[in-house]
Design a protein around this nucleic acid. Structure first.
Lengths: 177, 177
DNA sequence: TTGCGGCTTCCAACGATGGGAAGGTCAATA
DNA sequence: TATTGACCTTCCCATCGTTGGAAGCCGCAA
């Protein structure tokens, strides 16, 4: 209502529905709704018929989010990044700290994956890969030598592969129930 | 029942409950139950009172599984590996193929993570990290230059970061609903 | 006999994403 | 104008591996 005369400041703001916002931002419609639902982004305006209605500014936010996701930031991190983005009084050191933390996480993951790759590669190289059953890969998996106790202890050789928690949130020595 | 006289062949098979099997194998009790439930391992024997009862052989299987998980194999892959392990007539080429496929997956992931790390590192290096708001990291996330259209197209510089599907199952250009 | 710790099952959550059903809307065309 | 097809809405479910917790039974030791 009250949008008649004069090309008011709210004149030429072309809005769009979720599909167009999705195309324009590179974020799927599903994910846009999800981000709204979880509070990462504000509830969208609605048209009279209930369709979500996005402005260029909204799309700008969505693109920000997508780029952050592309860099591997978690949604939690992104919430923080958005806050910093909007905060005129932010200190760049805060952003830097966040990014550095993320880099550390990434490096842990990389190291873990590289360890796996290295082990697997040497096993694959040792495997004849023929019609016979003998296979060093299987052997490695079934053999109980060194391994044995690794349920406790800080470990022997594995560099960061087993860095507990962060990197590879898998197996951490049977805490049971 | 029928376990009296003579040190029968089934004489000294010390069995254990799930907590002990967990400690012995390095697989959490929770996960042991889960593996049983999903059919990765056979249903465990039960004591008169309903406790799961594991033999050394069972623990051997659990350790096999844990080692495979440690190498990053998916549960699906592990099911296949277990099948091959048990198959006297297996051809090592099958195991090798499985492992090689897994190595490829790992490499994709590593590449994606390395790309992220590299980008982030250069941004972090460019960031003063002081009390002032100016920050190249935020700038990079909010700026709509090159990026713009990357919703389609094979991309410009990014090496394997965006290898669709496998490596980084994230964002693939807004297919919406 | 009490009590603690371990076992049982069942249900839910995580994180980010996609799939799909059932029903309403929009815009173009017959 | 009526129909159609593409879009939107909400709601629920699945993924994958893992953990947490509740409610209730069991085993063993003091």
């Amino acid at each position: 209502m009250a949008r008649s005369l004069r090309p008011s400041p709210t004149r030429k703001i072309p809005k769009m529905n979720i599909g167009q916002a999705s195309k324009a931002s590179g974020v799927s419609a599903k994910m846009i709704r999800y981000y709204e639902q979880t509070g990462l982004i504000a509830r969208a305006d609605r048209t009279a018929s209930g369709y979500r209605d996005y402005s260029e500014a909204d799309v700008h936010v969505l693109r920000f989010i997508r780029r952050a996701r592309d860099l591997g930031f978690s949604v939690t991190d992104i919430a923080e990044l958005l806050g910093l983005w909007r905060d005129d009084t932010r200190q760049s050191v805060e952003v830097k700290r966040l990014a550095q933390g993320h880099i550390e996480e990434l490096k842990h993951k990389i190291t873990a994956l590289q360890d796996m790759t290295q082990t697997l590669t040497s096993l694959v190289e040792a495997c004849q890969g023929d019609h016979r059953p003998h296979c060093p890969i299987i052997e490695r998996l079934e053999t109980d030598d060194v391994d044995e106790d690794l349920s406790l202890e800080p470990r022997r050789g594995a560099v960061a592969s087993g860095s507990p928690g962060a990197a590879n949130p898998r197996r951490q020595a049977a805490k049971q129930n």
